[in-house]
Amino acid sequence: MFEARLAKGAIFKKILEAVKDLLTEASWDCGDMGITLQAMDNAHVSLVSLNLRSDGFDKYRCDRNLTMGMNLGSMSKILKCAGNDDIVTIRAQDNPDTVTFVFESENGEKQSDYEMKLMSLDLEHLQIPETEYACVVKMPAGEFARICRDLSQFGDSIVISCSKQGVKFSASGDIGSANVKLAQSSNVDKEEEAVTIEMQEPVSFTYACRYLNFFTKATPLSAQVKLSMSPEYPLMVEYAIDDIGQIRYFLAPKIED
């Protein structure tokens, strides 16, 4: 059987909010090491890669590797039924047709269970090659969400340029143009408020606002976001999830016609 219990059940609620607008359905692969999910959006422009390590759960048991195909809209509806402070357990038999979500209140006085039908999904997994990125920017996740939202008003693309001086976000369109520059933090008391840049070479790439805004739905999961960029390679936007894992989004660039 499979059982994964997470005292901080709100993490599951936040994960579903972070993927449900981008993906309609996805396979959750469960094994000894933990739970992973990899899926592309319908347009095959972006990819979500989620990793939750087994040692990050309060209880984790997986007798046999299993793949559970789920409609994420349905899963999101179920997780909305969990309280923010609830303990969440996901349970399934070997070769399951259904998965059960159990929500327990902190004081143990309320317990609810929701059973959901699984789907048979024939999704191909993509190999994500290891790469050394030319630029890696770490910045407050809320700031990144704000910039993506603000610049989306100007056009459907955002140019992200990174150099030793800092990182610049630009957009232009019918109403005009916008630039937001962030310098590397010189002195930060709180690590989560810092902007840090690791750069091998300066880069400048154009990305679709629509997808960046989908990615920022993960903002409640993490104080910081990491943007990794390289020539001839998709952007990686990564949010750490407590001490249990991370969610990564990959986005293909836009190029000059």
Binding site: M40, A43, H44, V45, S46, L47, E124, H125, L126, Q127, I128, P129, S157, T206, A208, E232, Y233, P234, F250, L251, A252, P253, K254, I255, E256, D257
Partner: peptide, 13 residues
Amino acid sequence: MSQKSLTEFFHPR
């Protein structure tokens, strides 16, 4: 500008 597909960079396992 045109949007590249992710499958141009990442390939099936």
